[in-house]
Amino acid sequence: MLLLIQYTLIFASVLLLVALGGCVSEHSGVINLGLEGIMVMGALGGALVMKFLPYPGTPSFLMFLAVLGACILFGVLYSSLLAVACINLKADQTIVGTALNMLGTALATVAVKSMNTAMNPDDHSSEIFYGKAKRAFLTTIDKFELNWFMIVAVILLIVVYVLLYKTKFGLRLRACGEHPQAAASVGISVFKMRWAGVLLSGLLGGVGGITYITAGVSTWKFENGVAGFGFLALAVMIFGAWHPFKIAGAALLFGLFRALGNTYQGFDFLKAMNIPSGVYNMLPYIVSLIVLAFTSKNSAAPKAEGIPYDKGMR
């Protein structure tokens, strides 16, 4: 039971972080379908730091900060590729997002493989092992493993809420997602606001990525990407009606279904039902399809999302 709660919380944190990223970006008017790729890059940054910083040897807190910094840096840098293409060059946001997902996985695989091969000519895997370093930011309280990134997720949730709904910046950002021409008419730079939205989503997506690969496993094969989590997070965001606190609720629900796949063997009645593990693997995706079918009708999506800003348009 405790294990189920632990996994639910960690997966919910991942979904929450990434969904918040999608939310900020969409409020500024850019659909960020590249979240999956951003997660991979964030995870890569964090994993590299964990691989190369000696542990034990580095103080835990320093380790945590370094990992956090690296995944943020990678996520933000990578998301700027989306920003350049979609904001400045007015490219189709769906194509660029999809390209970034493919590029993220391919780039991470090539980078990790060539790094592994360079260190050991017989090693052609795309895996990074970080089991030891990971312990730097795990605190065990009576069998419950608290991952520090869960706390980061809660803090960022509050920060994003305040930023979006209680500050001048947030109001301007949302204006650019609803009616950019109106925003521009009162002197707001739509390009700058959208850049800010996309970069923030890169930050949140990057942190989500590192949280995902430190959830339960101690080694990551970068060929696999992040298994559609970026898109699950977008489903969470739609279910959460583009509002941070509702997104948090949705993330908990989806996290629970995802966690069941990892822990169902601990429950006697679930084990007794003898359902093949594939069904549990499918569960989060099936649930999200059903949920989307019921919640998408009256969409609360920002009005101008997905449309490149054109000054001359009314």
Partner: peptide, 12 residues
């Protein structure tokens, strides 16, 4: 149901 095809596609 107005479900975004990209997201339902990925889920499927």
């Amino acid at each position: 149901c107005n479900v975004n095809v990209v997201i339902s596609g990925i889920m499927l």
